[in-house]
Design a protein around this nucleic acid. Sequence first.
DNA 1: CGTTAGGTTGACTTGATTCAACAACAGTGG
DNA 2: CCACTGTTGTTGAATCAAGTCAACCTAACG
Lengths: 253, 253
Amino acid sequence: MASVSQIFDRTVRKFETREPLDAADRQALYDLPFDVRTIDANRYIVREGDRPPGATLIVDGLAFRQKVTVEGARQILSVHIPGDFVDLEGSLLRFADHNVQALTRCEVAIVPREAIVALIRSRAKVAHAMWIDTLIDGSIYREWIVNVGRRSARSAMCHLLCEFARRLEAAGLSKADGYELPMSQEQLGDALGITPVHVNRVLRDLDREGLISREKRFVRVPSWEALRKCGGFNENYLHLDQVAVDQPLAARA
Amino acid sequence: MASVSQIFDRTVRKFETREPLDAADRQALYDLPFDVRTIDANRYIVREGDRPPGATLIVDGLAFRQKVTVEGARQILSVHIPGDFVDLEGSLLRFADHNVQALTRCEVAIVPREAIVALIRSRAKVAHAMWIDTLIDGSIYREWIVNVGRRSARSAMCHLLCEFARRLEAAGLSKADGYELPMSQEQLGDALGITPVHVNRVLRDLDREGLISREKRFVRVPSWEALRKCGGFNENYLHLDQVAVDQPLAARA
DNA sequence: CGTTAGGTTGACTTGATTCAACAACAGTGG
DNA sequence: CCACTGTTGTTGAATCAAGTCAACCTAACG
């Protein structure tokens, strides 16, 4: 359970890597009104078609975006970690075009739409940092299109495992030799556009060949290099080192 | 060949549907310095890893984003029409994480990065409109993930045909009963994550069953309703009616 | 005219799905 | 404490959608 003062810590830290903020910007973020809520795993945070009353910030736990076809097949679109706003779309667009669900039990802070809109109107740097964030989200979506469109199930799985590892590591949530995979095989299938049965077989094969070794959902990776190669993983698209482009790099040291 | 004064017309019009601009905002857009260039079909506009010298605006013709896996398979990520900036990423992020290619012969206007950055810093409403635009791009990427991940080739093709139709129509570039499909079957395959041979068979079957009828690349659609149903197409994700959310709708009439 | 890019079709192969059974495990309640 | 229930994971056998390979056709173009 995060204390009240820590609610926006991760978000502020993330935004500062996008755009240098001044004290007033930081304060505006910390001054945002919010309502903390705990959401059980698998419960919906946002539903397609809804106009959510505010923007939801993940404080603790993981969430994912998802869309269901008319035939009933679910496709997971992205996974989000603490510090991420999961439905800015809801405050800036007319309605949500997809669903957001809690992946694990989540603690979220709901910020009223008016407060988000006011923040954006008054603090240009914060708005800019948020914009950069949506650009990076877009970049990750593009890579996922490649993953489901052009990689074999095996290769796509390795790519996904690399992405999670890298993002969890950047957020300080993983060990060096592996990590607790927070998804069921069915959810992995929905992220990769394959069936859960096939997920199982792919993981089994990767395990047999020594690319990973599993204990329950903990995935140990003997050679990141080998996994990276199998997935054709290049982390550039995550833009983990993103800093504002019109500031000299030296000024940020 | 668009005349100089028309270069930014489509962009201004599009942005105004995102956020009400005032005269100074419009003027700032029209005052942007630019360099017009003609680019042959298939030539690269932006290359992955590059830091482009400016943002590229499509004035005439079509372009597409694309990424190539280590195995050499190409995945098309999006298609862009006149009025779209195709590489804002290049001005706001550190480097391009994907390629942009001309789909048809294109006329583009290249706006120096410094001018784009200055525009964003000085005209908050323009920046906001651009941000909304990247949110909508994100929404389209999400739908494409669903398309390649969870729809059959047949259904994905119908969906893509509906999307093009709707976007071309919204931009005033198509007839009611069909349109000139601007892509080769190989490119369609790269957009759907399937082989060109399979594209051919899917199109043949759709034609035989009367869902479409083809003359060269012109696609006639006897029943949009039927095509829509086959693709599970719901245009919400295009956010074609997007207007600023903190403005009363009546104020825009 | 030859050359090239795009489109078309058939025969065969394969990666992934489907269906079905069962094992492991957590939570629940008697 | 154990039976009951639901969820997740595992495996085999049969099937299918899409890929591969290869031939050939057509139109555009220098």
